[in-house]
């Protein structure tokens, strides 16, 4: 054995007495273990809140008369009533996201883009696809005015064949507040990226909703917000009453905790979207995206 090897052995042996005592470490492990279990529960709830924020990055739809609807939207505070022990849900999830104008803007009769987005979360939870719907769906305009999110969901389900787990409706004020709370987002269109803040996000929301949604969701996931209870609480507070979840939110929230590693892919619908809808229904969007790279927004 060489001299250096002998010295190494001696060095290691000599420093054995620096080894910490077992007893206190054992206690610390037990304390940390209890905390880890608690944190696991907490992660589930914060993941749920993250889902609201992600889903809540909303899209515009003509919404002028919605504010007169008698229906009382469920407030985002339902979160506090959702237990942390929701079972993890298998299978793909679909969420319909509806962006609504706030009352002030809506009352002015300003015409808006007629778009709704779907979020498809793959069964393996590796991807969340944001799919912008074609704007030409005239029936949607009427549906929202007449029946609110429920009717909108019904109509989108009818022409896409997709059963939605839940619907998220977010008004623009909430959207701006969330954008502000994440310190702005970067939205890229044909390789040109721009930094958007609370004041500049609304016009882009109207023209390129799925890009904004993707940017926000990516931001929330990549900057670690998804796993930071404090940050999530801030965002949910920022969204406040402007975020509404309808449908099987328990299922959605139960699955949301697994989303922390998901990649957000934004997809625009082609002129003939039947294949796309079929891919969503069969959880085959990964293949569809490979076959239709031109419809993936970058």
């Amino acid at each position: 054995m060489s001299r250096i090897e002998e010295e190494l052995r001696a060095t290691f042996e000599r420093h054995e007495d620096q080894t910490p005592a077992t007893g206190p470490v054992r206690d610390k492990i037990n304390i940390a273990w209890v905390r880890a279990k608690r944190r696991r529960l907490l992660l589930r709830t914060t993941g749920a809140a993250a889902a609201v924020v992600i889903a809540g990055a909303a899209l515009p739809i003509v919404f002028q008369q919605w504010q007169q609807s008698a229906q009382q939207p469920t407030n985002v505070t339902v979160l506090s009533s959702i237990g942390p022990s929701e079972p993890a849900v298998a299978g793909p999830l679909d969420v319909l996201v509806i962006g609504s104008e706030n009352r002030l803007t809506a009352a002015s009769g300003d015409p808006h883009a007629d778009t709704v987005a779907m979020i498809h979360i793959s069964a393996d939870r590796s991807r969340a696809y944001v799919v912008g719907l074609p704007r030409a769906e005239g029936s949607l305009r009427n549906s929202v005015a007449r029946g609110g999110p429920e009717m909108t969901t019904g109509i989108v389900s009818a022409f896409t064949g997709v059963d939605f787990t839940a619907t998220a409706t977010v008004d623009y004020r909430a959207f701006r507040a969330i954008t502000d709370a994440v310190n702005g987002i970067e939205v890229c269109r044909s390789k040109q990226c721009e930094q958007l803040d609370a004041d500049t996000v609304t016009p882009v929301l109207r023209t390129d909703p799925e890009r904004v949604l993707q940017a926000l969701a990516t931001r929330v996931i990549t900057d670690g917000t998804v796993t930071d209870p404090g940050r999530i609480a801030e965002l949910v507070r920022a969204g406040g009453n402007g975020v509404t979840m309808d449908g099987d939110t328990r299922t959605l929230l139960g699955a949301a905790a697994t989303l922390a590693d998901a990649k957000i892919v934004a997809v625009s619908a082609p002129k003939d979207p039947e294949d796309l809808y079929a891919a969503i229904r069969s959880d085959g969007l990964a293949e569809w995206v490979l076959a239709n790279p031109g419809h993936v927004l970058r």
Binding site: H15, T19, V25
Partner: peptide, 27 residues
């Protein structure tokens, strides 16, 4: 546990880090 702590001490070179490393691993 004590063997793991000794091993971690050799890896990290100091008792505090060794403790943290073992704790994290054991959780």
């Amino acid at each position: 546990l004590s063997a793991l702590l000794r091993y971690a001490t050799m890896l990290t070179g100091d008792p505090h880090s060794a403790e943290d490393l073992v704790q994290e691993t054991m959780v």
